[in-house]
Amino acid sequence: MRKVMLVCNAGMSTGILAKRIEEASEGQLQVRAYGEAEYADNLDGVELILVGPQLRHQIPTIKKNVTVPVQSIPPKYYGLMDGKGVFKEIKKLLEM
């Protein structure tokens, strides 16, 4: 199972999305949501970091701290908590 991390302010709203992406991936992905204060401690095995649009201004800083790709979640997927839509994006990014 490949690991993807979602980051938002406290891991609250991305928490809802993380569950939906996992469901959409049917066991291919492990998706965990973390707050901005704690993401750096949980990078083990993570291949991709997706950032909530409300924290997109932090992407330059997050990029400096990690070695994996960092992307913003498109707002329209985020608003609809569209796990399938984000999973499609992830498949492209991870070349699955």
């Binding site: 709203s13 809802i16 707002p75 608003g79 609809l80 908590m81």
Partner: peptide, 13 residues
């Protein structure tokens, strides 16, 4: 108290 889905969904942003 979580407003992100509405803010990005409608969108209001």
């Amino acid at each position: 108290g979580i407003s992100e889905p509405i803010i990005f969904g409608v969108p209001l942003m």
